[in-house]
């Protein structure tokens, strides 16, 4: 049934706007694809994110587009999000999204995943958490880590902009030491929390720290993380999506900032557990990657 909710009844086809007809005909639903979904098709196909209300040039919006383009099975995916800049984008996604209370996202995702497994035992349903660093590293740290400890089959993606951006610029646990913001005028007193290392220690089978500067790399990580979460256990991606407004950059400088940080705070970190590695090798042989 999941894909059927995008099929328009013929009686109404003539009154539906073009973007909805496009969604049915030109979006890359996994069911209609021979190859795994990816970012290569983005220019020619209908994106699942219709539009967004983030700032012009916001790297978070670009990252979300890469993530959505790489979901292995969007029609069977539920996205759980939390309060933050990301929550301004989620209402625009043409997928099931659940907005949880601030910080609760991994607890909510756990419940959804368990019920889906019980209700649809024969269908692979993916639950993906997408939240900012405030929700993941600060307010929701307990729920996030507990879901890793419990080995829940969910993928957690943190859009790390190193600040509480949409409330005016307060420092978060992910803010680097010494950083000054409008609402943190004396500068942060302690080091950035390395959430990716915590995730690995807490039991994630696939953990990455990266920026969104390379779309292909983001798409690959998303695909692998979701497949591992489906079969093995929790996975975590920490993706740097700087808030250009809060760090004083203009709309066209986000990509440059991410590229700079590729060699600094967000130098590539990747952990794959032996089970996950074996499983990914199998996926590659089967053409799932």
């Amino acid at each position: 049934m999941a894909i059927d909710i995008y099929k328009i009844n013929p009686e109404f086809r003539d009154i539906m706007p073009k973007e909805i007809i496009d969604l049915e005909e030109n979006a890359t639903w996994a069911q209609n694809q021979k190859k795994p979904r990816g970012i290569k098709e983005m220019p020619d196909t209908k994106e699942i994110l219709e539009e967004h209300s983030l700032c012009a040039g916001c790297p978070e919006a670009a990252a979300l587009r890469y993530v959505l383009a790489a979901l292995p099975k969007p029609e069977e995916t539920i996205i759980v999000n939390s309060t933050g800049c990301t929550s301004l984008m989620f209402p625009h996604i043409a997928l099931h999204t659940v907005h949880s209370l601030f910080g609760n996202q991994n607890a909510v995702a756990t419940g959804i995943k368990r019920v889906l497994d019980w209700r649809f035992p024969d269908i692979e349903k993916d639950v993906v958490v997408l939240a900012g660093d405030g929700a993941t590293v600060d307010i929701g740290l307990d729920y996030t880590l507990q879901s890793f400890f419990r080995q829940e089959n969910i993928t957690t993606i943190c859009f790390d902009n190193e600040v509480y951006a949409n409330t005016g610029g307060q420092e978060s646990g992910a803010t680097p030491k010494g950083q000054v913001f409008k609402m943190a005028p004396t500068g942060k007193k302690f080091e950035k929390v390395k959430m990716w290392e915590l995730a690995t220690t807490a039991g994630c089978h696939y953990t990455m720290n990266m920026t969104a500067s390379a779309p292909k790399a983001v798409a690959k990580a998303v695909r692998e993380a979701i497949l591992v979460a489906r079969e093995i256990g929790p996975t975590f991606l920490n993706i740097y999506t700087p808030c250009i407004l809060e760090i004083g950059l203009s709309a066209n400088e986000g990509l440059g900032e991410m590229k700079d940080q590729d060699k600094d705070r967000f130098a590539s970190y990747k952990f794959v557990s032996p089970e996950a590695e074996e499983f990914l090798k199998k996926c590659k042989e089967e053409g799932k990657l």
Binding site: K7, N9, P10, E11, F12
Partner: peptide
Amino acid sequence: VLYSYSDEARKKAALIK
């Protein structure tokens, strides 16, 4: 009623038209 996800939805679509 707009989307064709069940028999009831398909029947209703024709009736609404």
